[in-house]
Simulated scan of single mutants.
Amino acid sequence: MRKGTPIYNKLNLAPALLAGLLMIILNSCASSSAGPAPMANQTPSLPVVQLKQIDAATSRDYNAAIEGKVNVEIRPQVEGILDKIFVDEGAAVKKGQPLFKVNDRVYQEALSNAQANLMAAQANLDKAKIEVDRLAPLVKNNVVGEVQLKTAQSAEAAAKATVAQAEAMVSNAKINLGYTYITAPVDGYIGRIPYKVGSLVGRMETQALTVISDVSEVYAYFSFSEKDFLQFKEAYPGTTIREKLSHLPKVSLVLADNSVYQQEGTVETVDGQFDKTMGAISLRATFPNPNGELRTGATGKVRIPTTVENAVVVPQNATYELQDKVFVFVVGDSNKVASKPLLINGKSGNYYLVSGGVKGGDKIVYSGFDRLQDGAIIAPENISLDSLLKENPMR
C-alpha cells in the first residue's frame, strides 16, 4: 500500500492550493478597492460668492448702417461723350467745383442756330412794326381801310410771338450747353466713378456718374423690435415720441473692429410705422464727423446706455450655458447645490444683470463646478462680491 500513498497526497494537495490562491486574490481585490474609497467620501471645497441687488448701468447694442447726411447721385442732364474727369474717386470737393465735362460741340451749334433764329424773328418783328406804323396814319386819313391796319397788327403780334419762341430756344440751348459742365451740388466726398473719358453718357443711363456724400455728419440707422419699442416708451417720460427721444441719453457708435467712435451721437427720429416683414421699427442717430472718418456704407452698432434698477449682479465666471440658457449653482441648506436658470436683463462688463432665477443674498458657486451635479454637497469658501467688483468693475 505504500505505492498508493503518494497518489492520495497529490489528490489532497490540489484543494489546498486552490483555497490559498483564492484567498490571495480576494485579499488583493480588497486592498485595491479600498484604496480610492476615502477620496470618494471627500467633500470638495469650492469658492462661493453671495449676490447683491444694486442699480447698475448697462447698455444695449443695435446693428446699424451708416450713411452721410446727404448722398447725391451725379447724373448728366445731356447726352454726349465724356471729355474730361476733373476729380478722382474719394476726393473731397466743394459745392460748385467742376466734376465732369461732356463734349459740347453739338450744344454750341444748337445755341448758334437758336440765336440765328432769334435774329430772323426779331427782323420780322421790326418789319411788322414798320407796316403798322405806315398804315396807321393812312387809316386815320381814310386813305386805306381799317382792315389792312388790323391785318398788319395781327402780323406784328405773330412776329412778337415768334421772337418770344426764339428767345426761349436760345435760353434752352444755353441751359443745355451749361449742362455739359457738371459741378458738385454739395460739399462732400466723391464715390466710385464707373465711367472713363470717351464713354457715352446720358440721362437714360441706369448708372450714375458718381455719388457725392456729405459726411460732415453721419446718420446711423438701426431698429427696435416691437418689445424694445414698448420698453422704450415706458422707460422715458413724455407724451409724444419726440419728447421721449429728448430724454434718451447720448449714444455711442461701436465700429466694425469693436472700437468705440470718439464722438457721441443723438437719437433724433423714429420711423412712422413698423416693417411688417421684419417686425421692427427704424430709428436714426446722428453723429458729428468733423474729420471724415466715417463714410457712407460703413456698418457698426449703436450703443444705448441704460440703468437696470434693483438688478442682481452675477459674475459671468460663475455661470454656464446649456441649451441656450444660462445657469448657476445655488448653494442651499446643508451646503447642497442646485442648478438654477437665470433671467438676464443685460450685461455690464463681466457681469450679468439678472431679474429672475436668483435673488439678492443667494450664494452661488463661483468656480470649479465643471463636474458638479445637483444635490452635491460642497465645503464653501466665501469670497466677496465687492472685491470682485473692485478688481473687475462694471462698465
Rank of each mutant, 00 (worst) to 15 (best):
V331R: 00
A159T: 02
Q77K: 09
V48R: 04
Y352T: 01
I81T: 05
E205I: 06
M204L: 13
A114G: 04
A19H: 11
D386P: 02
P380R: 02
I25R: 13
A37P: 05
A208V: 07
P6C: 02
K140Y: 08
K150N: 10
I281V: 03
A164C: 12
Y221R: 08
S59A: 07
R75E: 09
I193P: 08
T306E: 08
L17W: 06
T319V: 00
P341M: 00
L372M: 10
T319W: 12
P38S: 12
D228T: 09
V48D: 05
D362Q: 07
T306H: 13
P38W: 10
N141P: 02
M204G: 08
V358G: 11
A16Y: 10
V270C: 11
M394E: 06
A136E: 15
A166N: 05
V78C: 03
K69R: 13
Q148P: 11
T266A: 02
Y107W: 01
K301P: 02
K233A: 07
Y107Q: 02
N142P: 13
L283C: 03
E234H: 15
K52E: 04
P76W: 09
V93A: 13
N176T: 04
I7T: 06
A120D: 14
N289E: 09
Q153P: 07
S339K: 15
R203D: 03
G292M: 00
P6H: 08
A173S: 01
P290R: 06
K233G: 11
V312H: 03
T296L: 01
F329N: 12
K233Y: 09
K276C: 14
L248N: 09
